[in-house]
Design a binder for these strands. Structure first.
Lengths: 116, 116
DNA sequence: CAGTATCCGAGTGGATACTG
DNA sequence: CAGTATCCACTCGGATACTG
């Protein structure tokens, strides 16, 4: 992510919210995490389909970042054609309260803005 | 925000998490909300000081967006020199579970990554 | 004090083509 | 199938100068 790095949290007062956003705040990361939370295990192509308009480049990039942060696990099957599965790590699952609160509020907000 | 608009939530499966991020996901918004949650009312200059390295342009911009989304309230006092106060709206306060969960996880994550 | 206006470099993310 | 490699348009956000 560009818009948030851990270093930038160092203001006069620290903001742990930024830390969280530096991990889940990528353009497609919420969607990826949401899907993996609801589906347990997904292949690259399945994720791509579910996310709709994401490009391969972006999907790969965001998945790599999540993997680097220890949020997801990437399992490669040595087959032809290749097969790669993604799932949340235990650490990644610790995000679920965060994601659920965000989804809650987001659902409400969506109703608020569409019903006026 | 550029990296997330409500429209982009329209994939095959909707992701309400993205909706939330479209509101609080700006580069400085978490910090602003965090400060307003902890301090109730802050003037423009006070916010700027607390956020450390933010520029006037960015602070103004992010505040306007939060105001447009109904998250914060901007109160102008017709004085010289001018005085403007910001605080969370009731709707903005409904974000506190989200912010608190994010802060929780962020605090833990910060320890995780710094202690290895 | 609390902005607005302008300029500009860096980074993001999309489209496309290619590969093991 | 699941990537990697380029190219490029666009936007974000920082620096600076000016104002009611």
């Amino acid at each position: 992510m560009s818009f948030l790095s851990e270093k930038e949290c160092e203001g006069p007062i620290k903001c742990p919210v930024m830390t969280t956003l530096s991990v889940i705040g990528g353009k497609w990361k919420p969607g990826i995490l949401w899907e993996l939370q609801n589906n347990e295990i997904l292949r690259f192509g399945q994720l791509k389909k579910r996310l709709g308009t994401i490009t391969q480049k972006m999907l790969t990039q965001q998945l790599r970042e999540l993997e680097t942060d220890g949020i997801i696990i990437r399992k490669i099957y040595p087959e032809v054609p290749p097969r790669v599965e993604y799932r949340l790590s235990d650490y990644g699952k610790s995000l679920s309260p965060v994601l659920n609160e965000m989804a809650n509020w987001g659902t409400g907000h969506l109703q608020t803005i569409t019903s006026k």
